[in-house]
């Protein structure tokens, strides 16, 4: 019985997240469209509302082209690795008190691990396509993920120190229900580092080097088509959602809000995620792209020292206050 309930929960979560992914693409196109004095999708359904569905159906029915020289098994597996790793990390996210599939003690570490794992998909895709552009994209992705993983992990250490736990639900609880309890205030430096690293981890502008379309055509995904190509996109958007959730949980007090909305315990959580997603999209419409070495420089020379300083500072303050 328990297993059945769990399966049902997984199914619901999967469906909800997939719907979010589909409509995240829609809202991205709409928001960027309006920021760029154009309309965005308008044709399919009212104001293009059915566009993501149409896109999904289209990519399902497209031919799955596999390059002759590609390393076939890896080529086929890479997008799945990406998607599965990202979907797995959803399991530990607490959407509301008690609304979590697997309330494990190392939730934060688990998510970091999964996001690293998904970059394997990207690297393998770059390698297995046997094309120079994808290879460069894969290499860039590898270097980027390794560098920014460190910055991100370190930025979250401050949160761990304050809350004394790695369990995501407990981190939210540790922040209390008051507005001032949110870790964004004591951990403002960490929040800054986290936000930058979050953009880099999800390969978003201004750190979208692995798929920089004007340089590497489409980066690691150049040789992919149809559903497999769509899988990379799904993974990217789920990654955005997961990272937004981490930001919400660790810095913005999770599901807590100024008042509780009856019947919708996850109201504030989802709202905060939407806020993050909007910022993701907003940045995409605004900023140019970094160069590869500048990205590395930013990661190693600025973000990691900042995160380390934040840890030291947090430790000292904690030791003094008690």
């Amino acid at each position: 019985m328990h297993v059945l309930v769990l399966l049902l929960q997984i199914l619901v979560l999967f469906a909800v997240v997939m719907l979010h992914v589909a409509y995240a693409t829609y809202f991205e196109r709409k928001i960027i469209g309006h920021m760029q004095v154009r309309m965005g999708p308008m044709r399919v359904g009212w104001h293009g509302l059915l566009q993501p569905i149409a896109d999904g159906i289209k990519s399902f029915f497209k031919e799955d082209i596999i390059p002759e020289q590609a390393d076939r098994p890896i080529f086929l597996a890479a997008p799945i690795i990406c998607l599965v790793a990202m979907l797995t990390s959803l399991a530990v996210l607490p959407f509301a008190p008690g609304w979590v599939l697997a309330d494990i003690n190392i939730g934060l570490i688990f998510i970091l691990a999964m996001s690293s794992l998904s970059s394997y998909g990207v690297i393998l895709a770059g390698w297995a396509s046997n094309s120079k552009y994808t290879f460069l994209g894969g290499l860039r992705s590898m270097a980027q993920v390794i560098s920014y993983e460190i910055a991100m992990g370190l930025s979250l250490v401050g949160v761990m120190m304050l809350s004394g736990t790695l369990n995501l639900s407990k981190i939210v609880e540790a922040q209390g229900t008051s507005f001032g309890g949110m870790y964004i205030f004591p951990q403002i430096i960490a929040f800054f580092v986290f936000c930058v690293a979050m953009l880099a981890e999800t390969n978003r502008v201004p750190f979208d080097l692995p798929e920089a379309e004007t340089e590497l055509v489409s980066g690691y995904a150049t040789e992919y088509s149809g559903m497999r190509y769509a899988m990379f996109f799904m993974a990217e958007y789920i990654g955005m959602i997961v990272m937004s959730a981490i930001g919400t949980i660790c810095f913005l007090g999770g599901w807590n809000g100024p008042f509780t909305v009856p019947g919708v315990p996850f109201f504030w959580f989802v709202l905060k995620i939407y806020l993050f997603l909007f910022v993701f999209i907003w940045i995409r419409a605004t900023l140019p792209r970094y160069r590869y070495d500048q990205l590395m420089e930013l990661g190693w020379k600025l973000l990691i020292p900042l995160a380390l300083a934040n840890i030291a500072l947090t430790g000292i303050v904690k030791a003094i206050i008690g």
Binding site: M35, Q36, R284, R289
Partner: peptide
């Protein structure tokens, strides 16, 4: 040029 460097919005402003 801006699009090459990754700034997409300038592209559409200019086309306007």
């Amino acid at each position: 040029h801006a699009l090459d460097i990754g700034a997409m919005t300038v592209f559409l402003y200019c086309f306007r």
